[in-house]
Simulated scan of single mutants.
Amino acid sequence: MAMKKYKYQLLLVFISVTLVLQAAVVVGSKPPKDKHCKADKPGDDGYLSHCTGTIKCPESCPECHLSCKFCGMAHCPKCDRVGSVCQDPRFIGGDGQMFYFHGYKDSDFCLVTDKGLHINAHFIGKRTANRTRDFTWVQALGILFDTHKFYVGSKRVGKWHSSVDQFVLYFDGYSISLPPGEGSKWVSPNRELSIVRVENANYLNVEITGLLNSSIGIVPVTKEDSRVHKYEITDADCFAHLELNFDFFKLTDSVSGVLGQSYAPSFVNPVKKGVPMPLMGGEKNFMASSIFTPDCEAVQFKAMHHSSIVGSGLGRNPHRLGMPSAVCSSNGSEGSGFVCKR
């Protein structure tokens, strides 16, 4: 009897261990990201507020942004596609070639400059001990088109919470208040610019009619990234930055800029192929005096009403965005993308 009882207990232990191991496999596995959508009634904004069935990320984009609001459209960060600017910062040009452009922290560089479009980027970063260059990330964009100025950037963030939206948005000097919630939309008065939330926080789609469509996300430098690349990131600042992908609709043959030059028919890519980190130089050629100043040496920008742009405070006038004369830096207090001191 004792032997039977012992065998019974041993069997129970075996079953328990088996169940625990199976549970561990399930918990440890990473099934494809999916989202269940119930209804298919069109919303007031013209989009389908909900779609029917379960939608999944494609294998080619396992970390996509799924949205019932947009009928299961899978928005990929697109960091491995033409027109992307991601990481520290890593570019994929119009010619399909990948390269890095480091620039300098607390500086502005011209990403794209053309007759009707100009995009400057503000770089944040840090330099650790025994380094000869800055680690840098793109924190904000200043986009000029026609006579308009559009600013999109990230606040400075200490500890990252993905549910907290960190976008700062301005159009022609006025703050944009984009309602929370997936699918919320803002359109400029003359409908040249539209902004749509692809997720509840930190992911937008921006379109400028006839010029570009861009996916813009805000991401932190993770502790794992910091460990691997020796960034020495602390809880005081996770260096929240933009991940970008551009589709351009109408570039001329004279387009230039760090990214823009790679779309010009005459462009010959100077970076070394086959190396782990092909570097693109040209800091002097692409450096701008501020995020809204089209004054890099490679500038091609010509506004449709240039005299109106100059009179409105672009160029070297410091009163951009209705702000007082300021010096801007990424080494500021909590809550601001970069701090401006008078």
Rank of each mutant, 00 (worst) to 15 (best):
I218L: 15
I208Y: 06
E207N: 14
S214I: 03
P220M: 07
L211Q: 06
L211T: 07
A201C: 06
L204Y: 05
N205W: 01
G210N: 15
I208N: 05
Y203A: 08
L212P: 07
L211S: 01
G210Q: 04
Y203M: 07
V206E: 00
L211P: 08
D225K: 13
E224P: 04
G217F: 02
P220D: 09
R227L: 14
K223Q: 13
V219N: 04
S226A: 12
K223R: 12
N213F: 07
A201H: 06
N205A: 01
V219A: 03
Y203L: 12
E207Y: 04
I208R: 06
T222H: 05
S226C: 14
V198M: 08
S214E: 09
T222S: 14
T209C: 08
V219H: 09
N202I: 01
S215G: 14
N205M: 15
E224A: 08
V198R: 02
S214P: 06
D225S: 10
I216A: 02
N202F: 00
N213K: 15
L204R: 03
L211E: 06
V219Y: 13
I218C: 04
K223V: 15
Y203F: 11
L204G: 01
E199I: 07
L211D: 00
E224K: 07
T209H: 05
N202D: 07
N213P: 05
E199R: 08
N200G: 12
N213T: 15
Y203I: 00
T222V: 07
P220S: 07
V198E: 02
A201S: 14
I208G: 07
A201V: 11
V219K: 03
V206A: 10
S215T: 12
E207A: 13
V206P: 00
R227T: 08
R227M: 12
S215Y: 11
E207G: 13
G210F: 11
A201P: 14
T222N: 05
N205E: 15
V221Q: 08
I208S: 03
I218T: 12
N202K: 00
V206D: 05
A201T: 09
V206T: 13
L211W: 02
R227G: 03
K223M: 14
I216N: 02
G210R: 12
V219C: 09
G210M: 07
L211M: 13
N213Y: 10
V219W: 10
E207K: 09
V221G: 01
T209E: 11
E224T: 13
G217D: 02
S215F: 04
I208A: 06
P220V: 10
T222P: 04
N200W: 04
I218P: 00
T209G: 02
A201D: 03
T209V: 13
L211Y: 08
T209D: 05
E224L: 15
P220E: 03
S215Q: 11
S214V: 08
S214Y: 03
S226D: 09
P220L: 05
N213V: 12
G210P: 14
L204V: 02
Y203G: 08
E199C: 00
D225Q: 10
E224Q: 14
L212F: 09
E224C: 01
S214N: 13
L211V: 06
K223W: 14
L212V: 10
E224M: 12
T222G: 10
R227P: 03
I218Q: 01
L211A: 05
N200P: 02
S226W: 02
E199H: 08
E207T: 15
P220T: 05
V198P: 01
I216P: 00
L204C: 03
N202C: 04
E207D: 11
D225I: 11
V206G: 11
N213W: 01
